[in-house]
Simulated assay, not measured.
Amino acid sequence: MARISPLVLAPPLIFAAMAGLFLGGMFRDDPDALPSTLIGSSAPALALAPLGESAPPTDASLRSGEVTLVNFWASWCAPCRVEHPQIMALKDEGLTIIGVNYKDDPEKALGFLEELGDPYSAIGADADGRTAIDWGVYGVPETFVVDGDGTVVLRFAGPITNSILANRIRPAIEAALAD
C-alpha cells in the first residue's frame, strides 16, 4: 500500500480550517461590532489642539451631566461624508456632539464643515492620533455615546446610516438618558 505524504494533506486541511473561520465569522451575532474595552468605563482624556477659532473640548465636556456623542472624523474620509447628515440630524435634535478631527489638514477640515455644516458643540484636532489611540479607534469614522457621568455606553465603528442611527445609536442614547 502506498503511503500518503503529509505534504499532500496540508493544503486541503489548511483550506478547511480557513473556510471554517470564514463561515464562523459570517454568523456572528453582530458582524459590524468591534469589541471595545471602554464600554462601561470612564471615557479617556481628550487631549486635543484647537481647530479653528473655538477652544477644544475638555474632559469636563464629557462629564457635564448630558449625554454626549464623541465623533472621530476627517475631511479625507469618504464614509465621514456619508454619515454627516445623520450627525447633523442629531445636532438638530439638541444632542451634544464633540468632534475629534483625526490626522487631518486643519484647512481641509474647516472646509469640510463649511461645506456640509458644523454639528459639533466643541471640536478639536488630533493631529498625531494619540487621542484616537487612547480611545481605541481603529479608523474613522467612529462614534462613542458617553453618559452624563463620562462613562462610555457604546462604541460604533463605521459610518452612521439611518439604520444604525435607529437600531444602535438611538437605543444607546436612550439607555444613557435612563441612567
Rank of each mutant, 00 (worst) to 15 (best):
V82G: 00
G25L: 03
G94W: 07
F27S: 12
R130H: 11
L69I: 07
R130L: 13
I169Q: 09
V152T: 01
V153L: 11
F144K: 07
T96E: 11
A176Q: 04
I39N: 07
E114N: 03
E83Y: 05
I123A: 13
E53I: 15
I169D: 10
V100H: 03
D149L: 00
A176G: 13
D179Y: 09
I97M: 10
L34N: 04
T151G: 00
G124F: 05
G117N: 06
D126C: 14
L9V: 14
A89R: 04
F27I: 14
V70I: 15
G150Y: 03
D29N: 13
G111D: 14
K108G: 10
I169V: 12
S64V: 04
G117M: 00
P141K: 00
A127W: 09
G158K: 03
C77P: 01
S36D: 06
T151F: 00
S163K: 13
P50Q: 10
I123S: 12
A132I: 14
T58W: 12
P35Y: 10
V140K: 04
P79L: 01
P44G: 07
G136A: 02
M88I: 12
R168I: 02
D32E: 11
E114A: 03
G111N: 14
L69Q: 06
T151S: 04
L95P: 05
L165F: 08
T151D: 02
K91Y: 04
A132W: 02
A89P: 01
P171R: 11
M26F: 11
F144H: 04
I4G: 02
G25M: 08
E114M: 00
N162L: 12
I123V: 15
D104A: 02
G111R: 12
L69K: 06
D128W: 12
A122Y: 13
